[in-house]
Design a protein around this nucleic acid. Structure first.
Length: 842
RNA sequence: GCUCGGGUGGUGGAAUUGGUAGACACGCAAGACUUAAAAUCUUGUGACCUUAACAGUCGUGCGGGUUCAAUUCCCGCCCCGAGCACCA
């Protein structure tokens, strides 16, 4: 017996694949195409995490199977390499980001290649390479020329730790998603993209993505946040300017008893002098604007506000209602002004309680309560019939809503509108390590795009990468770069010094992979028509509304420009689950690094303090020392073991916990497979009794790979080999089928067996994927379970063709069954073909 | 608070048109081989009760319901995870 030497075998086949260009994808193939894409990684200094190979292995399995099924497969890999870590490292050490990025890429490439993925490395891209970002800049100019980019000065999300502006999508619960720092507001001038122009299509086209997880579609839907309602104008006596309120519930408008403006609302600025309570209002606004987001959030739902002294007219019932300023009304939601209906909106009710504003009931819900509304539980927002609302009385709220909107529009008091939560994409950043924005500011001509012939516009060298507190890019200090001439008039001009966000490179990279060496176009029409759209896209769910929304937006712009032929970039999307690791905490919840913990009789103790600690599951982190390094697994057990273990851990989309013991178990299985092929000769005909299990395995493995159920595909392979250990009389054809079934999971081992024990000179990369014979799937005998009153009381085997009556009669003759049948009378007989015989006995 | 997922042995997980719950694996235990260990192979392994053996009772987060039959369907709760969050 020769032991399986994973180190030499894996090296050998990786070299073979590379020398033979086995995975090179052909843009002009006659075969049907299949394009599988992994979310390309940011090459961090920490190296590959075991979470990366999870997704990469899944796509690789699919790709290897597709190749064997006769597809031309595009499976590329690259680097999303612009980003803050490299830049922060540069600030600390003075090392140019391109140097550390290059080193990190080298390490990532080595690690990824050690796992034997079938990538076409000829197509590798790097977003920081000028030959790549030339086209990112070119795309920016296309959007600019189409009027989708504009410069605007407004309150931006500002991260004072990273010293950078963030997009709304990058703010999580008021914090910067990268670093966790609270985001503040800073008035800055930035370049924006009109993603809101595409809101409707980004929303509607989700319906054209049946192969996307519902979860992601729901999240995008919420993020876009489409709301239909009406803008109603209200007037203060003596002031011409209207206060416009957006509402989705105009049906309750007869119950309006106040109006609240956001502190930042323009009406206040314009007419503050006419406010009787001017001083109080000014003071309140000053206070609330000084509040940080932390303070606002910690106040929770507690409402504050101030009466302006003014009244507005509700023209529906000619009532004068008080005008307030309150910071629970957000300036950037709707119109920044809210009509208060305390009877049927909980927030309005809370506000009304504090200021002792009257509450009117205009809806009676199905509980029939018609009493005056004094408790929050009585605030009915969902359903009911109208009362106290004149011509609306008796109508259901949805009907009333339509009726009153017609009325408002007819009177000219309001206008139906659609509002979106989505806001325009803040695109520029004030940092060094990103694509320079290809624009020039000329005193005469204004903003002038850099001519396409001058792209790429490369980053200048600078001794100082430090960003500034005031939102100035480090590029602004490189004066000989900033000072240029206007491409239009030749006069002295200044370059735009902001850079693009790290989302830029990833918002179109799937197109570059189709045609990565094209010097004339970002991607040729022909290549795009052949490869597009991406058939399968695999990656983490953390990009649900960031990368995936931006990519869809750009792709739609490309579609409008005639650059791509599909509306959507990614046909099928699958999200992998997180890989977690064990960690320990003591009874006070203090986390303990794993190397300070020892196990005794199934319990865990702190080595020095001797106190008992408890095992928990946590994200892998340096401080807990529970990070698993893929290099070590590859060295000790081999790439095939790592690949198979990660696929076997559990359902692909679910979070899983790393278990080192189970890794060794997977290696044991591969050793068993190796020994099986080494120990047997395959020159006879296969034993007929083995055919059902082999064909069943072909079917299950094939189906489950397509369904991303890799764990059950592998368990079927195990079941099959367990069976074969009892009877191994097998011919060449069946032996080949089994090796091919394993090959997508453990390609190195499979190639070695294919070559060494099955006598093939050629690689199995293009061997035909096995096909099962339907007639061989079923065994001749089936097992019937006998149920009496629903409880299983025995079973028996019988020929699968046996008729119902015969099966039932057979069941009745079984001794153990008779015991139960004699206890009463059979009132019902149940027969499920091939499965169940049941009796109901009374 | 709202919106999506989930709760199955000591552990990871199988069982998705209602039909033998616990496949497959990890762990554990016993045995074979060995001077010994590792490796490998064999057997057992949900709980309870009982046994010479068969058998029996309970069991898929909790409480109800539908059904001959429920992890699966319905109603009402509890817990965990993710996302959104004063969105008018």
């Amino acid at each position: 017996m020769v032991k399986y030497n994973h180190q030499s075998v894996e090296k050998k086949w990786q070299a073979y694949w590379e020398n033979n260009q086995s995975f090179k994808a052909d843009n002009f193939s006659e075969k049907p195409k299949f394009y599988a894409l992994d979310m390309f990684p940011y090459p961090s200094g920490a190296g590959l995490h075991v979470g990366h190979p999870l997704g990469y292995t899944a796509t690789d399995i699919i790709c290897r199977k597709k190749r064997q099924q006769g597809y031309e497969v595009l499976h590329p890999m690259g680097w999303d390499a612009f980003g803050l870590p490299a830049e922060n490292y540069a600030i600390k050490t003075g090392v140019h980001p391109s140097v550390s990025t290059h080193d990190n890429i080298k390490n990532f490439r080595r690690q990824i290649q050690s796992l034997g993925f079938s990538y076409d490395w000829n197509r590798e891209v790097d977003t920081t390479n000028p030959q790549y970002f030339k086209w990112s800049q070119w795309i920016f100019l296309q959007l600019y020329k189409k009027g989708l980019a504009y410069e605007k000065s407004m309150d931006m999300n500002w991260c004072s730790k990273c010293k950078v502006v963030c997009a709304n999508e990058e703010v999580e619960r008021g914090r910067h998603e990268r670093c966790g720092e609270m985001v503040s507001k800073k008035e800055l001038k930035q370049w924006m993209f009109r993603i809101t122009d595409y809101a409707e299509r980004l929303l509607n086209d989700l319906d054209e993505l049946p192969e996307w997880p519902d979860k992601i579609k729901v999240m995008q839907k919420h993020w876009i946040g489409k709301k239909t309602g009406i803008n109603i104008d209200y007037f203060v006596e003596g002031i011409k300017e209207a206060i416009t309120c957006f509402t989705t519930r105009p049906d309750t408008n007869f119950g309006a008893t106040f109006l609240v403006l956001a502190p930042e609302q323009g009406f206040i600025k314009n007419h503050l002098n006419k406010f009787p309570n001017k001083e109080a209002v000014e003071m309140y606004i000053k206070e609330s604007l000084a509040k940080s987001d932390i303070e606002r959030m910690s106040e929770g739902r507690k409402k504050t506000g101030v009466f302006t002294g003014l009244y507005v007219l509700n023209r529906l019932n000619n009532k004068k209602i008080p005008l307030y300023v309150g910071d629970f009304v957000l300036a950037n939601v709707g119109t920044g002004a809210v009509i208060g209906v305390p009877g049927h909106d909980l927030r309005d009710f809370e506000f009304a309680q504090i200021f002792a504003i009257e509450v009117e009931r205009v809806v009676v819900s199905s509980d029939g309560d018609v009493s005056s509304i004094v408790r929050p539980e009585q605030v009915q927002e969902e359903e009911g019939k109208m009362i106290n609302s004149e011509f609306l009385n008796g109508l259901e709220i949805m009907e009333a809503k339509e009726r009153i909107m017609d009325y408002f529009e007819k009177k000219g008091w309001g206008k139906r509108v659609v509002n979106y939560k989505l806001r325009d994409w803040i695109f520029t950043r004030q940092r060094y390590w990103g694509e320079p924005i290809p624009l020039v500011h000329c005193e005469k001509c204004g903003v002038v795009p850099v001519p396409e012939s001058e792209l790429p516009l490369e980053l200048p060298e600078t001794p100082n990468y430090e960003p500034s507190e005031t939102g100035e890019s480090p590029l602004s200090k490189v004066t000989d770069w900033v000072n240029t001439t206007c491409p239009k008039c030749g006069a002295p001009a200044k370059r735009e010094t902001s850079t693009m966000p790290n989302w830029a490179g990833s918002s179109w990279y799937w197109l570059r992979f189709m045609d990565p060496h094209n010097k004339k176009e970002f991607c040729s029409k022909k290549a795009e028509e052949f490869w597009g759209p991406v058939d399968l896209y695999v990656g983490g769910a953390e990009h649900a509304v960031l990368h995936l929304l931006y990519s869809r937006f750009w792709h739609k712009v490309f579609y409008d420009l005639g650059l791509v032929h599909t509306k959507e970039p990614f046909k099928k999307l699958v999200n992998q689950g997180l890989i977690l690791s064990f960690a320990y905490e003591n009874k006070d919840g203090v986390l303990i690094p794993i190397d300070e913990v020892e196990e005794k009789n199934g319990k865990f103790y702190h080595k020095e303090k001797k106190e008992e600690v408890f095992r928990i599951v946590a994200k892998m982190s340096k401080s807990l020392k529970n990070v698993v390094n893929p290099d070590e697994i590859v060295r000790e057990y081999g790439a095939d073991t790592l690949r198979m273990y990660e696929m076997f851990m559990g359902p692909f989309e679910q979070s899983k916990t790393w278990d080192s013991g189970a890794v060794a178990g997977m290696r044991k299985f591969l050793d068993r497979v190796w020994r099986f092929f080494q120990a047997n000769k395959f020159d006879e005909n296969t034993d007929k009794t083995l055919l059902p299990i082999i064909h069943k395995t072909i079917k299950i493995v094939s189906d489950h790979i397509d369904e991303f159920r890799f764990n059950t595909a592998i368990s079927q392979l195990m079941v099959c080999f367990n069976e074969l250990q009892k009877n191994s009389k097998m011919g060449q054809k069946e032996a080949e089928s089994l090796v091919l079934l394993i090959s997508p999971f453990a390609p190195h081992l499979a190639e070695e067996i294919w070559n060494k024990y099955l006598g093939h000179e050629e690689t199995l990369v293009f061997a035909n994927w096995p096909i099962y014979d339907e007639s061989l799937l079923v065994e001749n005998n089936v097992t019937y379970a006998i149920q009496i009153n629903g409880k299983v009381r025995g079973d028996f085997q019988i020929d699968k063709e046996t008729k119902k009556e015969v099966v039932i009669a057979h069941a009745k003759r079984i001794e153990r069954v008779q015991k139960y049948l004699e206890a009463g009378e059979i009132v019902k007989e149940i027969f499920v073909p091939g499965k169940i015989v049941g009796f109901v006995v009374k």
